Amino acid sequence: MTIDSHQHFWKYEPIKHEWIDDSMSVIRRDFLPSDLIEVYKANGIDGCVAVQADQTLVETDFLLDLAKENAFIKGVVGWADLRSENIDALLEEYHSNQKLKGWRHIVQGEADHNFLLRPDFLRGISYLEKYDYAYDILIFPHQLGATLEFVKQFPHQKFVIDHIAKPCIKDGFFEGWAVLMKEIAKHENVSCKISGMITEADFDSWKPTEITPYMDLVLSAFGADRLMFGSDWPVCLVAGNYGDVKGLVTDFISGLSENEQKAIMGDNALKFYNL
Rank of each mutant, 00 (worst) to 15 (best):
H187W: 05
R83L: 03
A134E: 00
E175K: 07
N43I: 03
F203H: 12
A201D: 10
K74D: 07
L138Y: 08
W10S: 11
V245R: 02
L256P: 04
M228V: 10
E93T: 13
V179T: 08
L270C: 11
R123M: 08
E18M: 10
I161T: 04
D132V: 09
V39L: 14
N114W: 05
Y94L: 11
L270P: 00
H163F: 11
E260R: 10
G109Q: 11
F150L: 01
I73H: 00
C236G: 05
Y133K: 00
V160F: 08
E13P: 12
Q143S: 07
M197V: 12
D232A: 06
K166S: 12
E110H: 14
D120E: 15
L90M: 13
A269D: 01
D216K: 15
I164P: 02
D204A: 14
V238F: 07
G247N: 14
F31D: 04
F173L: 06
N86V: 12
G124H: 12
K271M: 07
C192R: 02
V245F: 10
L116K: 00
D35E: 14
Y273L: 06
D61V: 15
S205G: 05
R226V: 13
H142Y: 13
A221I: 01
I164S: 08
G47Y: 12
A185D: 03
I137A: 03
I184Y: 05
Y242W: 11
D204E: 13
P155K: 08
H113Q: 12
F154H: 05
G102E: 03
E92L: 15
M265K: 02
N259Y: 07
K101V: 06
L90S: 03
T2I: 14
M265I: 05
V190D: 01
V39Y: 02
A111V: 07
Y94M: 12
Q55R: 07
K74F: 10
Q55S: 14
P213Q: 04
M1Y: 08
L116P: 00
F115G: 02
C236P: 01
E110W: 02
H163V: 11
V49E: 03
G145D: 14
Q143C: 11
G44L: 02
W79L: 09
D204C: 09
F31V: 08
A50R: 01
W19K: 06
S254M: 09
V249P: 06
D171M: 07
D225N: 15
P141I: 04
K262D: 15
Y40W: 09
